[in-house]
């Protein structure tokens, strides 16, 4: 819940990440160099230029540039649980669509989200989940004929 002034330190960490990513890009450029069209052109140019600039910018952020400070709001416990829950449900939703099919996945995910995000009770969340799934089913699958994954139960 505490909000503290921050910036420089976090931005320096960002600079380090930038250097690492830039170095990775330079490695990729080196791998791509044999597939060039000519010495100034080919798939290696852009990774090389972008990688080099990322390294330069990263170094500047770490050693030279003073970035403006900013406030970081830390979420309280309740909000933290909500956020984490949402992220977990989204990943689970992704898995469920592929494995159980769009319809079942949407029932489960929207139920979970109404529970976690909206904070509704079991019944209300279930009813809302049923409604949104039904509406989406009619609109997407019945009216628009969008082919969505059906999963192991074929629904």
């Amino acid at each position: 819940m505490k909000a503290g002034a921050a910036g420089m330190k976090q931005d320096r960490i960002g600079g380090v990440v930038s250097i690492a990513v830039g170095a990775g890009s330079l490695v990729e450029a080196a791998i791509l160099y044999p597939f060039r069209l000519n010495s100034t052109s080919g798939d290696f140019v852009m990774p090389g230029v972008v990688g080099a600039l990322l390294v330069v910018m990263g170094l500047l952020l770490v050693f030279v540039v003073k970035t403006p400070p900013f406030e970081i709001e830390r979420p309280d416990r309740k909000a933290g649980i909500q956020m984490l829950g949402t992220i977990v449900i989204l990943f689970a939703y992704w898995w469920a669509i592929s494995e159980l099919g769009y319809v079942i996945g949407t029932v489960l995910a929207s139920f979970g989200l109404f529970k976690v995000v909206s904070g509704y009770g079991w019944i209300r969340a279930a009813v809302y989940a049923g409604i949104i799934t039904l509406v989406l089913y009619v609109v997407l699958i019945q009216l628009l004929n969008i082919a969505l994954p059906t999963g192991i139960f074929n629904v």
Partner: peptide, 19 residues
């Protein structure tokens, strides 16, 4: 409550499958 909501969900799924 949980079981009743499960039942609602299951019914909805069955109805959709029927369609």
């Amino acid at each position: 409550k949980f079981y009743s909501s499960l039942a609602v969900g299951a019914l909805a799924v069955l109805a959709l499958a029927g369609c």
